[in-house]
Design a protein around this nucleic acid. Structure first.
Length: 294
DNA sequence: ACCCAGGCGGGCG
DNA sequence: CGCCCGCATGGG
């Protein structure tokens, strides 16, 4: 294999890739995909294309086999979505600055930061606020089932549901979203769907810098500092972004400040001094997941 | 029963 | 500006 991955007839061979930790670590794909790791199965939709992923091997030498109506799209998407071009050895040597980080890397070796569709990331993270992982997934799956569109195979059989676009959501009301379990976030979602359909084109932000992306995202109702960082990182791949949620805050304080309370702003400053901006998003994901699972 | 969750917007000083 | 409060809902 040349580089960190190589394409095969119907799939990809990959180094340093742990699909389970990647999928389960509370990223957008955790919420919209279907998976069962006891049966090595993973399904998700790319727009109106459906992908079935079979896999084998270990995290050092991993192989996925893709089944989709458009295999080329599925392959290219997989490389992007799971950031297969990242040099994990370089990233680990850069972010493995102390015992805590080294342990996190050892425990979750091969866990990737994922790169998701900007709108899908936006909706997932609006739903995520003041919520827990299990329930975020419950609500996102309900949104797909009730507001998405059916994906069919060539025989017309329904094989999955697409993630609802912002435009599709504008056809529904706050009451509909409350019925789907969104709670007080329902109002934000009504406004965000309208705004991202009629005022802000999320797909025009991709080539802007981190600061501009974050500033634009924070114009969306229900998107504040933390959620904007999540979207910048996992919807746009901006590695400077370092979202600080309750778990990351708690863990940073415990590991680096003897458990003393620190303001989010001060924690951001600390992080900027500690880790290179090109890998900060990875630092955050490993701190988050290690901190949650201690 | 009680507590918490990948926070945010609005209101107040 | 910074601080404080309420907020829907399901799972532990």
């Amino acid at each position: 294999m040349v580089g960190y991955y190589s394409l095969t007839n119907d799939g990809i061979r990959i180094r340093d890739f742990d699909i389970r930790h990647t999928i389960e670590s509370a990223q957008p794909i955790t919420f919209y995909a279907d998976y069962d790791f006891s049966r090595n199965m993973l399904d998700y939709s790319i727009g109106n294309n459906f992908v079935n992923v079979g896999f084998s091997g270990n995290e050092r030498n991993f192989e996925v086999k893709l089944r989709s109506s458009n295999l080329d799209i599925a392959k290219r998407d997989f490389v992007r979505r799971f950031r297969l071009k990242d040099n994990m050895a370089d990233i680990y040597s850069s972010i493995g600055t102390d015992t805590f980080m080294k342990n996190a890397i050892r425990n979750y070796h091969g866990m990737r930061v994922t790169l998701n569709d900007p709108w899908e990331a936006t909706l997932c993270f609006i739903i995520s606020q003041y919520n827990n992982v299990k329930r975020i997934r419950l609500i996102v799956k309900r949104f797909m089932k009730e507001f998405g569109s059916e994906i069919t195979d060539k025989n017309g059989k329904i094989i999955g549901m697409s993630f609802p676009t912002s435009e599709e959501l504008t056809k529904f009301t706050e009451k509909d979203f409350r019925r789907a379990g969104a709670g007080f976030r329902a109002k934000y979602i009504v406004e965000a769907a309208d705004f991202c359909t009629n005022n802000l084109d999320l797909y025009m932000l991709q080539n802007k810098g981190y600061d501009k992306v974050k500033e634009s995202l924070m114009e969306i109702s229900g998107v504040g500092d933390k959620v904007a960082d999540c979207i910048a990182l996992m919807g746009y791949g901006k590695m400077e972004a370092f979202p600080i949620d309750v778990w990351v805050k708690r863990t940073l304080e415990k590991v680096y400040f003897k458990g003393k309370d620190r303001k989010i702003k001060d924690l951001h400053r600390f992080v900027e001094e500690q880790w290179d901006k090109d890998h900060r998003g990875y630092v955050q994901q490993y701190i988050f997941w290690q901190g949650r699972n201690i």
